[in-house]
């Protein structure tokens, strides 16, 4: 078990390094190919050549890509000092560098955006797991009935709707026309009630999409599980239907759902790009899109790394949880 864990964590670290290297490659090799200069993005086009040269020296933008990569990784772990003669800047670990655009340190920026993304994903996940799994189980138990058909019809429609379209529809209907919910414009610390009111629409539109997927998955898995011999055994030995479904069938049904849940949540924590963009929520996803259009490499690198970290960590946690839920799985 411990050996397994160490091996997996090692693999996670290697994978993150490769992802950083590839992001580096995209943003350093491609601009070189088209003759653009990262230093120019940093200081703006009007600056005089001396300033550009100074920045280039200080940030090490002229170093070979592997050297820059090495310095970045060291900076993440141990912090980093940028220096050009007397011009010295200290960046404490974990140092993600400085934004080309605003010249702020990236790590605190990331920590500003993360809570927004966390609150969006957190609220939505509760809604979609409860809604999606319940719908799927009911559909499977009432298979073929009108309830099943209409639930699955709605679910299929749900997975076919682009989230930004549902989001806009919701805003137009429930915010602009009916005025039930406001747009998300208040921070939690300012007014929790208003914040909650503003988050309802983003939560619901994000959760609707995922609830539809989870309902379909739950129904399919539940139907498969109900055909298993051990369910017949459970019924044959006289267990009541709620126990058979709730205790025996649910346990097997949850395994694939948990897998998908871990991966989905991991992906969402790195920024629900489209939802954040539609509702102008300034989380990681929204900021990533902004940073990409500004060619703000350090910010992009930071967000990519944090997203990849969540995905990879979620993968690992799911694999570990398997062993807890499904006794047949042995980690080795």
């Amino acid at each position: 078990m411990l050996a397994y864990l160490i091996r997996r964590i090692f693999a996670v670290v290697v994978m993150l390094l490769v992802i950083v290297l590839m992001t580096f490659g995209i943003f350093f090799l491609f601009p070189k190919m088209i003759g653009a200069d990262p230093a120019l993005y940093f200081v703006g086009k009007q600056s005089d050549p001396a300033a550009i040269e100074g920045i280039r020296q200080k940030m090490g933008l002229d170093d070979p890509i592997l050297v820059q990569f090495g310095k970045f990784v060291v900076g993440l772990v141990a912090g980093r000092t940028y220096a050009n003669g007397t011009d010295v800047t200290n960046c404490a670990a974990p140092c993600f560098g400085y934004s080309f655009k605003t010249e702020q340190e990236v790590f605190p920026l990331l920590m500003d955006w993360l809570p927004v993304t966390l609150s969006l994903a957190g609220g939505a996940v509760v809604l979609w797991v409860l809604g999606g799994v319940a719908t799927g189980v009911v559909s499977a138990l009432k298979r073929g009935t009108a309830i099943d058909r209409s639930a699955m019809g709605v679910a299929l429609a749900g997975v076919s709707l682009p989230i930004y379209f549902t989001g806009m529809l919701f805003i137009a209907l429930f915010s602009d026309t009916m005025g039930w919910f406001s747009r998300p414009d208040t921070e939690f610390a300012v007014d929790p009630g208003k914040w909650f009111n503003g988050m309802v629409l983003p939560w619901v539109s994000l959760a609707f999409l995922y609830a539809a997927m989870y309902a379909r998955l739950t129904r399919a898995t539940m139907l498969e599980v109900l055909n298993e011999d051990y369910i017949r055994t459970a019924r044959a030995k006289g267990l009541t239907e709620p126990v058979v479904i709730g205790k025996h069938a649910m346990r097997s049904t949850m395994t694939p759902i948990l897998t998908v849940l871990g991966l989905d949540l991991g992906a969402l924590l790195g920024g629900a790009v489209l939802t954040e963009y539609t509702f102008s929520l300034h989380g990681l996803g929204y900021s990533a899109v902004r940073a990409i259009s500004d060619h703000d490499l350090p910010v992009i690198l930071g967000i990519t790394l944090i997203s990849a970290f969540f995905v990879v960590a979620a993968n690992l946690i799911v694999d570990l949880l398997y062993a807890v839920i499904d006794p047949r799985v042995r980690l080795s």
């Binding site: 992802i19 992001t23 995209i26 920024g271 790009v273 996803g285 990409i292 060619h295 967000i303 990519t304």
Partner: peptide, 21 residues
């Protein structure tokens, strides 16, 4: 394959396309 699946795909696609001349 594992590596590509672990990528924050949408972000990466956006990033990649934005640097295409």
């Amino acid at each position: 394959m594992d590596l590509l699946l672990a990528f924050p795909q949408l972000l990466f696609i956006i990033a990649l396309i934005s640097v295409i001349p």
